[in-house]
Amino acid sequence: MTSPLEARSLSLVREGNTVLDDVSFTVAQGEIFALLGGNGAGKSSTLLTFLGFLEPSGGDILVNGTSVGSDVALARSAIAYLPEAAALYGHMTAYENLDYFLDLADKLASQAEIDAALERVALLVEARSRRLQSYSKGMRQKTAIALALLRETPILLLDEPTSGLDPIAIDEFHDLVKALAEGGQTILMVTHDVYGACQVADRVGLLRRGKLVGSFAAENNKRINTEAVHAAFAEREAV
């Protein structure tokens, strides 16, 4: 069976620097795969190659079995992407943002569906008609997640999704991500939040200076990850 996401011997060289070096992994349908690594390990670059923003120097990137390079629009249509800073428009309300981005994604949603999504991410009703510039980071993140929910794409890419969130918001977010995966969505998240990743992911991959140095099932995380993860992060100063 074709994996929704697959990196096949992926290499990426930018301005003479090796960013990714022979990285291979697959993410199965309904699976949450977390890529862990220090700053500059190549995590975000991996996501950007799946979205077609960076062209691999070697290997291939496949979304639903199709090479991203051959049809980037098709790949993007299957993916909802949540960047690190949920970069919605501050001068627009949550409703207006969702309306704009859903339209941009060529997706129609009724007001009831939008409210249901906002309800699911627990964004307060009274906040929904306020401009996002008055939102906390967590509220903005919730709005962006609601967008991802409404888009109903089979794949979700998350870039440092819990960065800057308070512990309660992180817990809520993890619950939501798990629920999405249970609903069949394939999720690839990159993070440097070791414990968060181990808590939410089915599998964890460790990126060190562009190399995938390990991949572990989350049930083993208590013992294995502590050592391997520390080894991966120890390299970050040299990067």
Binding site: A73, R76, S77, I79, A80, Y81, L82, L104, A105, D106
Partner: peptide
């Protein structure tokens, strides 16, 4: 500069439609 470029293009699917 608002870190929204890739998010926008990824959501739109193509630069042309945005």
């Amino acid at each position: 500069s608002a870190s929204r470029h890739d998010f926008l293009v990824a959501t739109a699917g193509s630069s042309l439609s945005l």
